[in-house]
Design a protein around this nucleic acid. Sequence first.
RNA 1: GGGGAUGUGGUGGAACUGGUAGACACGCUUGGCUUAGAACCAAGUGCCGCAAGGCGUGGGGGUUCGACUCCCUCCAUCCCUACCA
Length: 801
Amino acid sequence: MSEYNPSKIEESIQKIWRDEERFKSVPDKREKFYCLSMFPYPSGKLHMGHVRNYTIGDVISRYKKMKGFNVFQPMGWDAFGLPAENAAIANNVSPSEWTKQNIEHMKGQLNSLGLGYDWSKELRTCEPTYYKWEQLLFKKFHEKGLVYKKKSFVNWDPKDETVLANEQVIDGKGWRSGAQVEIKEIDQWFIKITDYADELLDSLDGLDWPENVKTMQRNWIGKSNGAHIKFKLEHSNDYLTIFSTRPDTVFGASFLAISPQHEISIKLGESDSDIRSFLIKCKEVKAAEADMAKAEKLGIETGLNVIHPLTGDKIPLWIGNFVLLDYGTGVVMGVPGHDQRDFEFASKYNLDIKQVIDGKSDELPLLEKGKLLNSGKYNGLESEDAIAKIIEELKESNLGEGLVQFRLRDWGVSRQRYWGCPIPVLYNDGIPSLVDESELPVELPELPMGSGPIPLSQNNEFINSKEGYKRETDTFDTFMDSSWYYARFPSADNNDQAFDKNSNYWLPVDLYIGGIEHAILHLLYSRFFHKALRDIGLVNGDEPFKKLLTQGMVLKDGAKMSKSKGNTVDPQAYIDKYGADTVRLYMMFTSPPEQSLEWSESSVEGSSRFLKKLWHLINGRKYKIIDEPQSLNKNQKDLRRKAHTSILKIMNDYETRHSFNTAIAAIMELFNSIPESFKRDNPSEAEIFCLNETIIFILKAIHPIAPHVSEYLWNNFTDGSLGRIDSSWPFADKTLMEAESFQLVIQVNGKVRGKVEIEKTLSQEEIESTAKAVENIKANIENQTIRKVIYIKEKIINFVI
RNA sequence: GGGGAUGUGGUGGAACUGGUAGACACGCUUGGCUUAGAACCAAGUGCCGCAAGGCGUGGGGGUUCGACUCCCUCCAUCCCUACCA
């Protein structure tokens, strides 16, 4: 008998798939299923996270195909981005060459895993055939009024004279130069995602997405009701406007704080050296929100006052490093009595702390709402009431108004990098205009000979390549590239249109699978893109991804696998050693998709062992057509019951729960439940019938996960008599699932004291007396009054004494 | 700082709707096969205890006949935080 040889089998089966073009998808009459896994950044090698992500997608795609769906599963490359520039500097290769080589290698790896992609629709975001359309979409967004330019902040490395990504700033220093990084303001392109804030929020409700992701998006969008309140600057005609969700606490305002980048701060810095040095200090904070929040809250008095709009009191104006110019109005009202952060700030700088809300305790800060006090004529009113009345008064005196504010900010899409999609803009005397459609794409130029990846701003040939104009030198944020690729896939081979009838047929994506780390940004940008494309008339429907599955990370020794930690495991070594089927089986078996997965070497061995056992049971055996036997003995009935209940459970696990680990456990259980006698050389006809049925069920059930070995065994077992393995899913016959008895668990006061097998024909009284008669139960309830009997049908009986 | 998760044997995990905690595996122990090992096969394996029994799902408290599951509270770890992708 031949041994299980994964590499030989996998190669031969993959050849059949290639020759048949098994995974090429075209529209037809079946129900469609567009299954998409987040495309990878071509970093060079597949990592475990990819293997997991793509195996999940492939398992579901193959399962859906067996269930009769027309499945489309494409794959492509998120090919622009920072790592290519880093590699270019480190290895002196061009980003495009490096990227191309990585793609070739990774594509081979994906194929060796047996992933069923329709490569006829492959796309690469770094190719002009892709980004030409991205440039056109940007132009359409511009025509719709969704694009504008404004100043905003970046991490600036003064030594290298480059803009740094957040991850390139380490402890406030540039990663390469080591220079102190500064916040710098530059002019950049923005897209008005906030125009869609309400819709992005509201249409979350109808999505079949995990609740936690929807919650994260809701909180990110952050719709809040509040008010703008104007404070007049003393000795001036200017006003400062703040936004507050708690106008009921306005009488507790004891300071106002402005951002260090606010024009007043900058003006004061010019004449006051203390303020100047404070502002310089504030520049030394990384632009990332987490870093700003962690930084110590610092402030400096401006010496200016503002006038409280309701009391007329003078209130000091401060500059605070925690105030973001980009967010809200760039001015904050400090109410130390009722806000944690304001309280800490006021305590530190000895500012007034007033209580204006009556709470259960008098300990400040008091964060909850309640009755107002120390608030003039509003004393005694409940917060909600007071909010309405205060807004009314402010409105009458033109010093404020109620309004809804979003936390969501517009999307800055400018990057000062080489390896990205050029923003298609021309400047004539500094006036920008979008490049004409007939002149698209604006191609990214090759790098000058011998140069590293210099930004386009240093490439004069590019800048001046259209006479009379200067070209825009910013490139797009790579989130732009990945925000619409899902819609391009079905039309990826069409160079005349961004989206053709294929996109219309396949969209929306029925299941989108990817890492939880994309829960907010990528998924929100894509949702925005879809809505904007819809309004331009390019796609149908309101949402791009009907259902979402977010997978957890792959860990080693409790930590995320990363190069810097040196704890990476190269999947290729395992594919080479055990074969793709084992790696896929291991990945699916060891943890449910949404949880993180701890890599363990020895468990891989276990998955391989199961496939070997499967091989030894089935290889060499031949399927024989036998009529369904008239009567079966207990063993035979039990096996059939197990087979049919298992198939039903596995179906539910694949389809509804996406719980592949329990599906595999059920397959293993079914395998283990085959009586030894059925496998002998001379079984009875009835035994052969039951065994054949079980083998068919097991091969079909494991096929989405271990497609090579199952198809190979299937072909040899059936000799083509039952069609291709992926042509159908087994029928689970409910009439075969019924058992004649069940095990009843007997509890006394909620503790398990015994178990007994009960015939289903028994009445509840009979069950109760049978339970009471069980040896250990008798002892437990003797001489006791049974106060209550709780019977849960065919499960449990509990005697309460 | 804010937002979202997770926590169950030596290990990965199961328990789907409040109803037998530990399915299915890994590992380990013992035995078989073997000159030996690997592989394979069989039995055992939550903890304490000779046993009867008791304890047990991150800690503490609560609801319930019954809690891994619901509520309160605390702790630990991970992810995101708008220029990593």
